[in-house]
Design a protein around this nucleic acid. Sequence first.
DNA 1: AAGACAATGTGTACAACGTCTACATTAGCG
DNA 2: CGCTAATGTAGACGTTGTACACATTGTCTT
Lengths: 218, 218
Amino acid sequence: MTTIGIPPGANIGGRDTYRHGDLSRALVEAGVELARAGGPAAVALRAATRRAGVSPNAAYRHFADRRALLEAVCSASQGRVAEAIEAEQALVADATDPVAAARLRFRAVGTGYLHFALAEPGLFQTAFTASTDLESATSGSRAGTSGRTPFQLLTDALDRLVTVGALPAERRAEAEFLAWSAVHGLAMLLITGPLRALGPEQAEGLIRRVVDMVEQGL
Amino acid sequence: MTTIGIPPGANIGGRDTYRHGDLSRALVEAGVELARAGGPAAVALRAATRRAGVSPNAAYRHFADRRALLEAVCSASQGRVAEAIEAEQALVADATDPVAAARLRFRAVGTGYLHFALAEPGLFQTAFTASTDLESATSGSRAGTSGRTPFQLLTDALDRLVTVGALPAERRAEAEFLAWSAVHGLAMLLITGPLRALGPEQAEGLIRRVVDMVEQGL
DNA sequence: AAGACAATGTGTACAACGTCTACATTAGCG
DNA sequence: CGCTAATGTAGACGTTGTACACATTGTCTT
């Protein structure tokens, strides 16, 4: 029993070398797939290693425990959120009036965030359910293609509002948390909360109203 | 081998009758304790039955599966939230001006909600992380001592704002979701999100600012 | 009063999970 | 060429949810 080692020429899990080569990456990608389908609770060490074609304990060479893998998947998911926001901002990039441009850019942060939440609820929950602190909210591993995290994209948009004169400087402090609260709360209500049965057009209406509220209430 | 039956005079798990008597209640209470300490993920069937001094499968006579028990614990937790809101409203009940009273009553919904979230993060998450729909958000099992759920307390306060003239009727529609979004989002940021390391006084400042934003942005 | 039935609790079993310890393999460096 | 560290595997243990069969008992009917 216990096939000693690997019979030459055999392959384990679709791979022909003892080493995997890029297991860390593969585990995170598998974790992202699991999170997409079932949210953070579905990110299991054994399931991820199974997908990577590797024995369960191999994961422990790259992650201290399940929590660490979940952290990595969380970072990757936040990167996707950042990309969604950047895509939404790219749609409104061609505004001539700088004040209007700053406003649209700011609104795009919220709408991009919420559109991603609706399109990829599992990933979205994984991105923000797993506990994060303020330092890691600005770490490079959570950035999109522009190299900025969702949180940084928000602060950037707020700073620009101030620069352009659309937001009084005395109201700038902590404004990111006010805006984030409203948008994140709506996302939760729409995904897992009492509004999860809403149709897309009604959801879109609520999204606009919440962003309106933030713009007006800041 | 299976001790056949119960030797007369023996007692299993601190109880001397074969029947438990009020197991359903006991399981929910045990679940609430688990949720308080560890959030929704900690609400385990086996742990709850263990606390109730009963075999694991006994739970299945009262709940279809773990999800069902979690639903019950969720309802109980929402009841606690409702009580917290009612307590906060009781603090401001003595306002003479009806407009000011309606405003304070409305604000108390948000501050009570957020104070509960800070005081009992595990229960709070359990109350609102477990998926709920709109019908169950108004079911009696989730009510506080006044017989109203947190959601109903919010709609009540908004209705009163309209009655008193503090909120234009044309802005009333869906206002509960806007307010709820902002407050719920801040709760998440404060409990599991990037703001969870904030001190109490700073958290209190943010709470006031978010409620200000809602009052102004509705 | 006696016996049937439904409600309730127990025991056993299985698969999946996280994680510990020991061992096997291999890349890279002297 | 051989040593060492990095990487992967095997086996085991305790936890979880849950299915199935069985035991006990309150209650209702006759």
